[in-house]
Amino acid sequence: MADVITYREAVSEGIAREMRRDPSVVCLGEDIGAAGGVFKTTAGLFAEFGPDRIKDTPISEQAIVGMAMGAAMTGVRPVAEIMFSDFLACCWDYLANEIPKMRYMTGGQVKVPLVVRTANGGGLGFGAQHSQSVENWALAVPGLKVVAPATPADVIGLLAAAIRSDDPVLFFEHKGLFASKGETAPDGHLVPLGQAAVARAGSDVTIVALASTVPLALAAADELAEGGVAAEVVDLRCLVPLDMATVLASVGKTSRLLIVEENPYQGGWGGTVASVVADEGFELLDAPIRRVAAECVPLPFADVLEDQVIPTTAKVVAALRSLLAY
């Protein structure tokens, strides 16, 4: 029987595997050293790799990501941690203006092989400045690869691909998934960037999900299965590259598409998925494309309010029933 680990443990395991393999991999961020990270996602790394390769920084997001960039341009592979994805706004210049443009605006002279990891998403009652799902911010920037795993094995496999990539990668770890468990990954496990996974096969409706919405989609699919409906769940795993081939193939089978995303409906990634399907898969569809996304309000604090704003299994089930009845 395979070993089971948590999503949280998979983060440090994935980083450690790459650091053992490649001495040029280093980590920097706030509290990531002896403290092991505020989410304990770097636990054990300081003890194994020491203070030269696991660097605690001050609360200086521009220095963290800006220095990671300079190091990446000069022969090191940094893995920078921004504690909460909301704080990406404090260093957004680097992620919007500097890192993703460097290769292009130098005519291909410079590469920036780095990973910025960050804890994303809501559901834990952290309020409006520590709960946002901001993967759609990253999607709006040409030149960034955007990864958001849903399972521990994918955390390990996608970290391997991200750290080895010569392109800059923004790696979203979902706070609501840290305690979730799954099979660990075998040695050498690598999940190529831009390959979606069919998390559950089905023929009646396609649910496209990412990170936290994958378990929501699977739970909803289970509920509908009791009524004889076979839903297919596609876990995108990455937003850039976006595996539209897998989505279109699934829609070709089911003719119905529901997209479940935690970022706001307005400007959310589901709009891009829907746009491509409408453009290239219109004749595959027997019903309108539907989206379950966050409401366009700041994330509220109280559970009862937060549930109103972000996707829940109940909302996914309701949307599926409506779509199947069309």
Binding site: G66, M69, G70, A71, M73, T74, V76, Y94, N97, E98
Partner: peptide, 12 residues
């Protein structure tokens, strides 16, 4: 913006 980058290159 490039001051942290230079520091990063020096770290490297």
């Amino acid at each position: 913006a490039h001051l942290p980058m230079a520091a990063g290159a020096a770290w490297s």
